[in-house]
């Protein structure tokens, strides 16, 4: 029989919530891009990876103080996201979706290979940012300060984003563009600018996610983004892709369930990465468009 104490459960939940927040932050980027372009942005995980390298260079190599470094990293990543959008996705606006998808795969290849050439494949250790890695002890529960910061950062960013989307003109333009480009254009919305904005925000959030991720898993190599990227995409799909709150719920759900399953069935920890997919498939079987996804009705 599996017995556990309450502090143990708290410990695992704290870990789960931390990982969940990371998933949520990156998942938002996937879901925003999907919402507006109907594109699985395979390059998002490599934007995440590049962002980790930016942070490494800013803090370890150029030894900037971390607040400045953090701002620079977020800006650089956002710019990278916009550049990718302008060069690889914008020319394909009228093309079939599969071309867009292949373009995303191409960008992903390019970034990974470029990183291998420029940064070499040697794994680097991610620098500590602020006091995030310090350990806090509450009775038997020991967590990194990260476990407290991560949810706060995530919630602040989430509510700012929701405010932006629901209450501002830019947000209105995003919502309109995600429904219909043509109509949005007729309403005087600059669709291209709106899409760039989406990439900017999504990439900036990925940068924040990357920095926090680096605190928990402090190793960088050119393919570091692949697994987190895939899982964050799964989180977005679980929540119903295109829905920002859904992405957050999906991310948290995935993070917590993954940690709890590994804890409960520790013999199966080799299968850790498979759980995400199993959860995904189970949820898709009952809700084919995710938990909060809009259901599509085929019109004849």
């Amino acid at each position: 029989m599996f017995t556990f104490t309450f502090p143990q459960l708290l410990q695992q939940l704290a870990n789960g919530v931390t990982v969940g927040c990371l998933y949520a932050l990156v998942a938002i980027g996937y879901t925003m891009v999907y919402g507006i372009l109907r594109l699985i942005n395979f390059a998002h995980c490599d934007i995440f990876m590049m962002s980790m390298y930016f942070c490494y260079y800013a803090i370890t190599v150029f030894s900037l103080p971390w607040p400045i470094a953090l701002v620079l990293v977020v800006v650089a990543t956002a710019v990278l996201g916009v550049i990718i959008e302008k060069s690889a996705y914008k020319p394909l606006r009228e093309a079939p979706r599969i071309s867009l998808l292949i373009s995303a795969i191409g960008v992903s290849y390019l970034l990974e290979n470029l990183a291998t050439v420029v940064f070499t494949g040697v794994p680097r250790s991610f620098p500590a940012v602020g006091d995030m890695q310090e350990i806090l002890t509450f009775g038997e529960v020991r967590v990194m300060k990260l476990a407290i910061y991560a949810p706060i950062i995530m919630l602040v960013l989430l509510f700012s984003l929701l405010f932006l989307i629901n209450k501002t003109k830019t947000g209105m333009a995003m919502r309109a563009s995600s429904k219909d480009f043509e109509t949005a254009r007729l309403m005087g919305i600059n669709v291209n600018k709106t899409i760039s904005m989406t990439f900017l925000i999504g990439s900036a959030l990925a940068a924040v996610g990357a920095v926090i991720w680096g605190q928990r898993y402090p190793q960088i190599q050119p393919f570091v983004g692949v697994m987190p990227g895939l899982k964050c995409f799964i989180a977005a799909v679980i929540g119903g892709i295109g829905n920002i709150k859904g992405a957050v719920v999906g991310g948290m759900l995935l993070g917590v369930m993954e940690i709890l399953i590994v804890w409960r069935f520790s013999a199966l920890s080799g299968y850790k990465d498979a759980f995400a997919f199993i959860i995904l498939i189970v949820i898709l079987l009952f809700k084919p468009t995710g938990l909060f996804g809009e259901t599509f009705v085929d019109k004849v």
Partner: peptide, 8 residues
């Protein structure tokens, strides 16, 4: 359908 099939 569509992307959901792909990801599954």
């Amino acid at each position: 359908k569509g992307d959901y099939l792909a990801i599954a």
